[in-house]
């Protein structure tokens, strides 16, 4: 088993969960209604917790402690997709991102339940079960607001058009893609993206939202290789602000 390939895979999944988890947490106290405030806060806690569990797998493979990994790296050492670090913007953008991201994530973890790396396969069974609540939440709102008023439909359509090229960046391939597939660690980004497109089409077909032709879109890549937008470093600075005051403190 190619351990470098495995670690890179774990880093990018955990970093995605941590960064979007942090963005979700920015809705705490700011949600458009109380239930949404709780939903985004709860999903934030799930995602940050899941990133912690994956950083623990990395720690078992010889990497640093989870807190060190999460709070002391700079932006160019993170492997999250640029999509996850974009600011929350309006609620419609957060909702569209939540839908596009979690639709991919639940398929990713479903594929990982069959990983040859057993600790990851075990964890994936658990995470997949939790993500059902996230996709349930996303699908419910997209179906309702995607067919509600003129304003809700046009807002979501605008956010969808903005989000899609970034969403495709989630499937930027690893340098070790063939090793991952060959060693049966992960079925690969191509299979994941195809299944994701199918599921996105199924849900959006129940709304008045329009999907552009996939071939007309260009993915916003770079995040997996540490090339990020200007939005990541300020997020990291804020996220690690308390930790950095005293990295040796016992909490």
């Amino acid at each position: 088993m190619n351990e470098i390939a495995l670690k890179e895979l774990l880093y990018k999944i955990a970093d995605d969960q941590l960064i979007l988890g942090h963005r979700n947490s920015e809705w705490t106290g700011m949600g458009p209604l109380l239930e949404e405030d709780i939903a985004f806060s709860s999903m934030a806690q799930d995602k940050v917790g899941q990133s912690y569990a994956i950083y623990n797998l990395l720690h078992a493979l010889g990497e640093q402690e989870p807190d060190t990994i999460a709070f002391t790296r700079n932006a160019n050492q993170f492997h999250n997709s640029i999509f996850t670090e974009l600011p929350n913007s309006e609620y419609d953008f957060s909702l569209i991102r939540h839908f596009l991201y979690d639709t991919a994530e639940i398929i990713r973890f479903d594929l990982l339940t069959r990983s040859a790396y057993q600790p990851l396969a075990d964890l994936a069974v658990k995470v997949r079960a939790e993500l059902r609540y996230h996709t349930l939440h996303a699908n419910t709102w997209i179906k309702q607001l995607g067919s509600a008023t003129e304003e809700s439909i046009s807002r979501l359509q605008h956010s969808l058009d903005t989000a899609l090229p970034h969403a495709l960046g989630m499937f930027e391939e690893s340098l070790y893609e063939q090793d991952l597939i060959h060693d049966s660690i992960f079925a690969g980004e191509k299979i994941l993206m195809e299944r994701w497109k199918q599921q996105v089409e199924i849900i959006l077909s129940k709304t008045q939202l329009q999907l552009p032709d996939w071939d007309t879109l260009t993915a916003v890549n770079g995040g997996r290789k540490g090339q990020h937008s200007e939005h990541l470093q300020p997020l990291l600075d804020e996220m690690s602000e308390v930790f950095r005051i005293d990295p040796t403190a016992e909490w």
Binding site: E35, I38, A39, S41, S42, M43, Q45, D46, G49, A129, E130, R132, Y133, L136, H137
Partner: peptide, 28 residues
């Protein structure tokens, strides 16, 4: 009322019979 509640493992419901809100331990 909400599939997410005050802790990760609880959802929020409302009973139309006794008119009280309650929480459920979420099936997972």
């Amino acid at each position: 009322k909400s599939p997410f509640g005050p802790t990760l493992c609880r959802s929020i419901h409302y009973c139309l019979d006794c008119r009280e809100a309650f929480e459920q331990f979420k099936p997972v």
